[in-house]
């Protein structure tokens, strides 16, 4: 990062001479070094997948959740600092609940993403605040069908067909670009995400797959992918990896 040691990086209230807000860049950096998170908008729904590095042998399985439902029709996956991410999750929950209470209808995806983005953005405006070290992926299902959004630490929100953030994003994006997403079902999307996460994962430490989706199979509600489906995807991904390893040898 060019800014290191050149000043202008102590607060989000000061631009650098070349027009950057270094604190925001550093927050993005915190996301970039975190576990990979992938989202795919398939033809019948959205799948979100996280690579959760197992930091200790004594860690309980399934702890350190990274995907969260924020309403029945919307959910988030958080990349980067998970403690920061949970703050965003809480805000998203109350935005969804407020909208429902005020307008009597579930919040459309594009509005939820806008509101999360506004919230995140505020932390880039004041000297006493620190931007969130998290990018969140938002999966929604509404009148406009399934949608996938990514909101980054600067408060920018984009809608994607497929997205990847975190450590393995480069490799993951290349693979996602080759997928025919409009022909891909969520059931296959789960397998693809497992495969990509195994592909981009750096050897030594083991990792846990956390997958959530919103599609017909989950009753059009944002839910964890059932354990047996994840296990099967995991098995297939490992088999594919072994196969390609043998090809390499």
């Amino acid at each position: 990062m060019s800014g290191i040691g050149t000043g202008y990086d102590l607060s989000v209230s000061t631009f650098s001479p070349d027009g950057r807000v270094f604190q925001t860049d550093y927050a993005q950096k915190a996301v970039d070094i975190g576990g990979t998170v992938i989202g795919l908008r398939c033809n019948d729904g959205v799948v979100l997948g996280c690579e959760k590095t197992v930091v200790s042998k004594m860690l309980e399985e399934g702890s350190n959740k990274r995907t969260f439902a924020v309403d029945r029709h919307a959910g988030l996956a958080i990349a980067g600092l998970s403690a920061d991410g949970r703050q965003v999750v809480n805000r998203a929950k109350s935005e969804a609940s407020n909208y429902l209470s005020f307008y009597g209808d579930k919040i459309p995806g594009h509005l939820l993403s806008e509101r999360i983005a506004s919230f995140v953005h505020v932390f880039n405006l004041y000297w006493y605040a620190r931007p969130f070290g998290t990018s969140v992926m938002l999966a929604t299902m509404d009148r406009a069908g399934p949608q996938l959004y990514v909101i980054d630490p600067s408060g920018t929100a984009y809608r994607y067909f497929g997205a990847a953030v975190g450590k393995g994003r480069q490799g993951a994006r290349t693979t996602i670009e080759r997928l025919k997403l409009e022909q891909l079902s969520c059931a296959d999307g789960v397998k693809e995400i497992a495969k990509i996460l195994h592909q981009v994962h750096e050897e030594e430490k083991p990792f846990e797959l956390e997958l959530s989706w919103i599609c017909e199979a989950s009753g059009n509600e944002f839910r964890r992918v059932p354990a047996d489906v994840v296990a099967e995807a995991d098995r297939l991904a490992k088999a594919a990896l072994d196969e390609s390893d043998m090809d390499d040898d």
Binding site: F102, Y103, G104, D105, P108, H110, L111, R143
Partner: peptide, 21 residues
């Protein structure tokens, strides 16, 4: 206000909800 942030017509349900509240 709401119709400006929505990309579709506001639903009758939403109009009714505001009136009830």
């Amino acid at each position: 206000q709401h119709s400006m942030e929505l990309d579709t017509f506001v639903s009758v349900k939403t109009a009714a909800r505001l009136a009830t509240q």
